[in-house]
Amino acid sequence: MSASPTVAAVRAHLAAEDAGDAGRALEQFADDCWYAIPAQGVELRGKAAVRDHHERLLRAFPDLRNVVLGCHDAGDRVFARLRVERTHRGAWGGVAATGRRLATAALAEFVIAPDGRLEAEVVHANPLEALHQLGAVPTTNAFELAAAWRELAGEGAR
């Protein structure tokens, strides 16, 4: 059974990211596309902003690989369950390159435009997972991190 055209478009996008080609990664997207990472407060509008994000991402992680664990066509959306593997070779989000290897989980939700192109990508991931692997935070658990922060601030557990 062959993949639907929208799943094929998602796989082409992910393969272009794996090849380090931000321009090609955006070929499947509508011109008025958008990109979001809700857990990080990221929301970008327009192909130029999304391309800039991808270019910065691929400079920081030039060996980025999306290991597709599952892909589901839900009609108006395609969901790709991923393990994202990469090495931190350049500054990312204010964290200088560490040379550390990361492997994090993500669910990429691709919104399909009426013309069948990709309208958006929404990445659902726990940002603490990557920050912990980079050595920037002591845990991936947000509640443990909040408790540690309160302790450092001298507030104790509340």
Rank of each mutant, 00 (worst) to 15 (best):
V123G: 04
W149F: 01
R101C: 11
N141H: 11
G116N: 05
A125E: 13
Q133P: 03
L128T: 12
A91M: 07
R89A: 11
E121S: 02
H132N: 04
A120P: 12
E109T: 07
H88Y: 09
E121W: 08
A148V: 15
A125G: 04
V123E: 02
T87L: 05
A97Q: 11
T140V: 11
T87P: 09
A142C: 02
G135T: 00
D115I: 15
L131D: 02
A125K: 14
G116P: 08
L128M: 12
P114Q: 03
L134C: 04
W149L: 04
H124E: 04
T104P: 01
T87F: 07
V122M: 13
E119S: 05
A108V: 06
A125V: 09
A106S: 10
V137T: 06
A148M: 12
F110G: 00
D115P: 09
A146P: 00
G93D: 10
G94H: 02
L145K: 15
I112P: 00
L102R: 02
A136N: 12
A103L: 04
R89S: 08
T140L: 12
R100P: 05
A130K: 15
L131I: 15
R100Q: 13
L145N: 14
A120N: 05
A142R: 15
N126P: 00
H132L: 01
A96R: 15
H124R: 08
A136Q: 14
A106E: 09
I112H: 00
G90Q: 05
T98I: 10
E119N: 01
L134K: 02
P138V: 12
T104F: 13
A105P: 03
A120I: 13
V111T: 03
A120L: 06
A113Y: 02
I112C: 00
G90S: 08
F143I: 14
L128I: 14
W149R: 15
P127S: 09
N141Y: 04
E119T: 00
H88I: 03
R117I: 14
E109M: 01
G99Y: 15
R89E: 10
V123N: 01
A105F: 07
Q133H: 06
T98D: 00
L128N: 08
W149S: 06
I112T: 01
E121M: 06
L145P: 15
A96L: 05
A108P: 02
A103T: 13
H132R: 08
T104M: 10
A91K: 03
G90P: 08
E144A: 11
P138M: 11
R101S: 14
E144C: 01
A103E: 11
W92S: 03
H132P: 01
V122R: 15
H88P: 03
T140R: 13
N126I: 11
G93Q: 13
D115C: 13
Q133D: 09
W92R: 01
A136S: 13
A105D: 11
A91Y: 07
H132K: 07
L107C: 12
A106I: 14
G135Q: 06
A147K: 07
A97E: 09
A106C: 07
T140C: 11
F110M: 04
L107H: 04
R100L: 09
F110D: 00
A147I: 01
E119L: 15
D115F: 15
G90C: 11
A125Y: 05
R101G: 13
E119I: 02
G93R: 14
A105C: 07
T87I: 04
A113L: 03
D115T: 07
L145I: 08
G94K: 01
P127G: 08
